[in-house]
Structure formats: structure tokens, C-alpha cells
Design a binder for these strands. Sequence first.
DNA 1: ACGCCCTTGTGAACGTTTGCACAAAGTCGC
DNA 2: GCGACTTTGTGCAAACGTTCACAAGGGCGT
Lengths: 289, 289
Amino acid sequence: MSRGPSARRPAPAGNHHGIPDATVARLPVYLRVLYGMADRGVTTVSSEELAAAAGVNSAKLRKDLSHLGSYGTRGVGYDVEYLVYQVSRELGLTQDWPVLIVGAGNLGRALANYGGFASRGFRIAALLDCDPGVVGTVIARHTVRSADEIEEAVRKFDVAIGVIATPAAAAQNVCNRLVAAGVRSILNFAPVVLNVPSDVDVRKVDLSIELQILAFHAQRRTAAARLFDLPPGGDLARGIAARGLPASPAAASPNGRSGRGARAAAESRAVAGSGSEDDYTTGAQAVGT
Amino acid sequence: MSRGPSARRPAPAGNHHGIPDATVARLPVYLRVLYGMADRGVTTVSSEELAAAAGVNSAKLRKDLSHLGSYGTRGVGYDVEYLVYQVSRELGLTQDWPVLIVGAGNLGRALANYGGFASRGFRIAALLDCDPGVVGTVIARHTVRSADEIEEAVRKFDVAIGVIATPAAAAQNVCNRLVAAGVRSILNFAPVVLNVPSDVDVRKVDLSIELQILAFHAQRRTAAARLFDLPPGGDLARGIAARGLPASPAAASPNGRSGRGARAAAESRAVAGSGSEDDYTTGAQAVGT
DNA sequence: ACGCCCTTGTGAACGTTTGCACAAAGTCGC
DNA sequence: GCGACTTTGTGCAAACGTTCACAAGGGCGT
């Protein structure tokens, strides 16, 4: 409901419920680690171990778990199986969640083939696409159906969670139809900001944004390294020469940068650029079958 | 950068880097919206409009932008083109970032076909996979190369950002090799917690976690909607669970879930689960052949 | 030139999240 | 049965993030 750029919480439904959002976001990680431990036969785990495996601070982990109740044993730790159950229950994974996937491009296919999907309480109810060339094909044992059937599928399978894996241009429309059909939880892979009523929970997964955040930190790192006049290894320069830059006149703007080894500036694009090619969900060529 | 013990805190000098993380995470969203506006010919935008389009509060937007400098004009708003340039520059998108993708399953293919990839300063340097059946095939104009060439590719293309789109089991190994080869920014799609040195920046994109967070809120919503049915769990499960109930905590909760119509319980799985099917990055069947 | 109106930029209040440090509460050896 | 040891659960304070509210500043009409 909040967390992240998809946050949208104008008025009500604040976090007056028990568990902090930050904690909820970490519970699935703990759960995954716990499953792994259970698989390896581990029966008991301390907050220190579990925290290390989950990549967090142990105090944070204990505080997180304390929101679910006192399920540990002092001097010993937590019972893995018991904790798995408690976390699963808190997350609502002890019930079955039929999920509707709209968009059967590369991404939709990747999702449909995701094994962990079915294994944790989520089940693909249906897979829809609007491309007549894809409708009717079988992906991961599901026959792709027409996107016209959104409302019907939601009703028929009692879908509570919708996944939008369509191109950006189609996303809002699909979203509107999902919401109108009664879906209140949406996972959006399309690179657009969806407009929804305040009682709808949208979470966004966006490759492009993550890359840009990485780029920011990478840039800072190299900028810092440059202060020490880091010796730019010979191979860096060679790397530049080696790759055939696709046409980058790079009419250098007011700044000559030289990041990790001089990187071709592409600022003309950055400013003039426009590009409505924000679709990584497309790639709808024929299925290899 | 991996949050944690990496940063000491001798001096209470607030943010030891200029821009708050929360702001950095939102800048790409603003940027996308700005591009859309520029495409539509909008030349000037107010914080109110931009905020609405980006799905945030206008005060937050102004504060975010104020971290980059004073690029607005009071009484008027922001110049779209100028702001695009400033945000791009701040994010480091005015330079070219060669990206290495490891794993050419469905997800890797979806990424490779993502148009927005190349359009914002990111360029696919190479696409690797370890499946001999995939190596040599062409995806989005890139010939898939062997995963053995990680080190070589990083060196040759001066790769700064690595994308891990492999099955979970292979992820840590690939990660180690990327780091050893000098990559300091990693985008991980595999559902595992990667272990990296503190100077490596890892970002995770995890479908399963997002779904689980959605499920939590959805459950809460339906639980609230049925105030009548049952007392809000909690001590219920604790009673039955008591102590070591290795076998079937599942048998304990087939209570009336009447939320959005009866849903098939799948609780035995929720606990017994295990499963190493945490790979939504697989699905590496033949490509177009 | 001047005053009105609009929007930015920001100080300050408020809420959330993190991390420390330690008492409470349990186990284990003897 | 008891003391030493281990680990949980939590009070507290600092760090971080969000939101409000408004003064500062700039354009525009007259």
C-alpha cells in the first residue's frame, strides 16, 4: 500500500494496523530463507543466523518478528517450522490466491513459467493477451485467452490479484478494467504510473527505475574515485575503442566527463530524446513452439 | 550500496551523500513523466501537475527537486526540457552504461527486448547464458555468448552494471564472478539474497516478494470486511500450534474463509512447501527454432 | 512602475524506521 | 535445584522521511 514509488495513500487506510510496512516488506525474505533452512534440515535458528542469511541486522529481525508475536524461545532461538507457519499466516499465504496475468509477451511468459509462483499460495488463474496470434497458444500449461475476457475471468476464478505485463500503452486500460471487475491488488510491470482509486493497492516492478538507481550510485562511486585521480587502466581505454559505438557523435555538452574510463556521452539524446519505447513487456513474437 | 555496517557514524553529519535515497528512488519516475510531457509538447510544468502525474504529493516533489538545485521559476513552474536534463545528469544518464545480462531465459529475453533499455543511457553490452542450446542464438540483435565469458565481457566492454537473470541456484556464483571481474553494481532478479562485499551495490527485483506483500494487504482487507465471522486469528493458531508441530499446522486452520468467496486452502503446501522451484528466470527452452 | 497573484523553495513539526543496549526469560551442565 | 550462559523481546534515542504552511521571489496586467 505504500513502500516505494508506487505509494499512493491519499487519505484513509493509513498504517494504523499492527505491522509496519517496512516489516511486511521483509517478511517474504525471511520466509524464503526459512524455507531454505527447513529444506536443509535445520530445525532451530537464532536471530543472528537468520538475520545474516536474510541480509539484515539481527535487532531489526527480532523487532520485525516481535510484531507477529513472541514466537521465539529465549536462550535457544526460533523453531524453523513454526516460524514458517506464523510468517506464512501473517502474510496471508495460508490461503490460495488466484492470480490473473494480463499480457503474454516475454515477461508474461517468464512469470507464467515461474515455479515459485504456484508454490507459495499463488496460482495462475488465467493468462490473457490481446494479440490474436498469441491467444490460443499454451504457456506453462495455460491456454492463453483473449484479453476481452478480463471481467469474465475475474468473476469466474474469484481473482483478487491482477498482474499487468502489457506494454505501457495498454496498462492503464487493463488496470481500469481489472479495478472495475473488482480486483483490488495489482502488480504492475508496465513502466507507467497507474491511476487508481484509493482503495486499490498497486505495486510496481520497474526494471528501468532500478537500473537508473544503480547508475546514480555507480556515478557517485566513479566521481569519488576520480578525486584520487585513479589510474585508468589501459584496458579501459581499449574497451572504448573495441566496441563499435552505434553512431554517437556525442556532441559533448558543456561538460567533458570521463567516468570509469571515458564513456561516450549521450546527452543530446538525454535532452532531446523522447522515445515512447517504454515497453519491455512486449516482444510478442511467435512462441517458439 | 549495501546498507549496513559499511558506514561508520563518527560525525553526526546527516546524509553522508548529497541526495536522500528516497529521493533518488523517485527521480526516475519524474524523469519518465517528464519525457512523456516533452513528447506531448508541454514546455512548462508546475510542481502540482508533475506531482499528480508521478503519483506523489507536490510538497514531496518540490523537496526532491530542491536537492538538485533551484531549477524552477516561481510563479511559473519548471521548464520541462531543462528539468529532464538536470534529472538525467544527476542520475548519471548523460553517460553511456554498458550492461551485461547473464541468463537468457524468458526473463533475460524480456529484458533484452526492452526498448527503454537502450533509450535512456543503458546499452546491452552482451547477453550470456550457460545453456549450450541457447548460446549462439540471436536475441534482440545480440548473439548469446557463453557464461564462461563473464570476465572477458566485463573487461572488453567496460561493464559497470551486471544483471543477473539466472535461476536462483546459479545466482551467487554468477554474482561472485561479476564482482571478481570488477562489477560494482548488480541488478538481481534471482530470488536469493546475494552475498557481496560492502562496496558492491545490489538491487533486487523479486516478483514473489511483491506478490506476498500484495497478499498481506489483500488479506487484511478481506479480514476487515468480515468483522463478523471469526475473531482476528492471533491466539487461535498459537493454541493449536503449541509446540513442535512438525507435521501439520495446516490441519489447524481450515476455518471459514469467506472473504471474497470460498477459496481453496492450500495450507499444507504453505508449510511443507520447501521446493527449490524458486526460478522464474528459467524456462530456457529453444528460442525461435 | 507597481501591485496582484501564482508557484517555488524551505523551516519546522510530525511520523516512521533503525540500531543500541539491556533486562527478562529460558536452557544446560553439574 | 541452582547458577552460568545464551538469546529473545523491547525501551529509547537517533536517523530518516513526509507533510504542512508560509515567506521569498518572479511574472503579468494595468
